[in-house]
Design a protein around this nucleic acid. Structure first.
Lengths: 115, 115
DNA sequence: AAAAAACTAAAGCTGCCGCTTGACTATCTA
DNA sequence: TAGATAGTCAAGCGGCAGCTTTAGTTTTTT
């Protein structure tokens, strides 16, 4: 489908349990790459790859000082996702509104008809 | 990783552009399977498979009457996702609060020290 | 200066996900 | 009742995402 939109990349990024766990960890404060890797039963390289994905979609930023790269969570990266959810809920509500308006109009007709 | 949590299934479901498009369509009102399939350049069977995934994670419900299956969007299915986002933002804020408290305490010390 | 620590980069492997095809069932229409 | 419509089921295929391994670099420690 060749979709490179923001919502697509961040959804894909967070579909991974490991990446979600990394974000959860970072949402409680910054951490180095090896700190992030410790809880996981996988190679450091694998965790680094996950971090790259999270950086590419703006959910994580990092800075290297000396030999240590420190990663931080970027809450703004959640916005595309949050917005998509809001839009879906809103559309569903509007649809419900229209249905209710339709039913209300029907009741109205009935009442005026019976009047 | 064998993760069957609600958040995992719904994130995975919505990581797919086609499935997201289906939800977008349904959030504006119910539709039959073939209606849903029309905009996509793929077989009906493929779309049916996507619908199944969306049903399994509670984002879509459907009902078959006669030979037509009508699908509806279930906004409640978004809750796990919405909650996860809220929690992440909250954790990040709290972390920021602690930082600010720490800095404020530092300023306090400075002031009392200079006093 | 040598060894250790903290990554980084690249190549290769494997399992799963999304898709197709084909064969089938059930329902509606002419 | 014949044909069309709407969906279902299952098998199979190809690509790619996530992981490993290996070999490197840079920085810190001893």
């Amino acid at each position: 489908m060749l979709n490179f939109s923001q919502i697509d990349t961040s959804m894909r990024a967070l579909a991974e349990p490991t990446r979600r766990a990394i974000v959860e960890r970072l949402s409680r404060g910054p951490a180095s790459v090896s700190d992030l890797a410790k809880p996981f039963d996988m190679s450091l390289a694998a965790v680094v790859q996950h971090i790259h994905v999270l950086e590419e979609c703006g959910l994580v930023v990092s800075e290297k000082v000396g030999r240590v790269r420190t990663c931080r969570f970027e809450p703004a990266g959640l916005e595309p996702l949050a917005e998509w959810v809001r839009e879906r809920k809103l559309a569903a509500e509007r649809k419900l509104d229209r249905l209710e308006a339709f039913l209300a109009a029907g009741e109205q007709d009935k009442e005026t008809g019976n009047d």
